[in-house]
């Protein structure tokens, strides 16, 4: 099962602008995997969206789910 992840803002400096991961069951597993691969992400703040919907709780991922990592911006 393949999960596509798109990354926004300055998080792209850490993990690039997109990546695909295999066999990730839910968003908690995804976060754990991402933080293992990119330890700097663990320190960053971001919201997670699954298929265009920001999620606040652990969410099951399915084949071809698109996950977005959305960091806050402060600039104005």
């Amino acid at each position: 099962m393949s999960i596509n992840i798109i990354i926004f803002g300055q998080l792209t400096d850490i993990a690039g602008s997109s990546l695909a991961l295999e066999n990730i069951a839910d968003t908690n597993c995804l976060v754990e995997e991402l933080h293992n691969r990119y330890p700097a992400l663990a320190k960053a703040k971001y919201a997670i969206a699954v298929d265009k919907q920001v999620v606040n709780e652990n969410t099951t991922l399915t084949e071809n789910s698109i996950v977005a990592l959305l960091p806050p911006f402060s600039g104005g």
């Binding site: 300055q10 703040k45 960091p71 600039g75």
Partner: peptide
């Protein structure tokens, strides 16, 4: 706060002055 419940530290996210716009 429904999107970002807690403020990040100013140092954690670069401002326009630091990162450009």
């Amino acid at each position: 706060r429904d999107l970002f419940p807690h403020p990040p530290k100013e140092d954690d996210v670069l401002s326009c002055a630091e990162s450009g716009v």
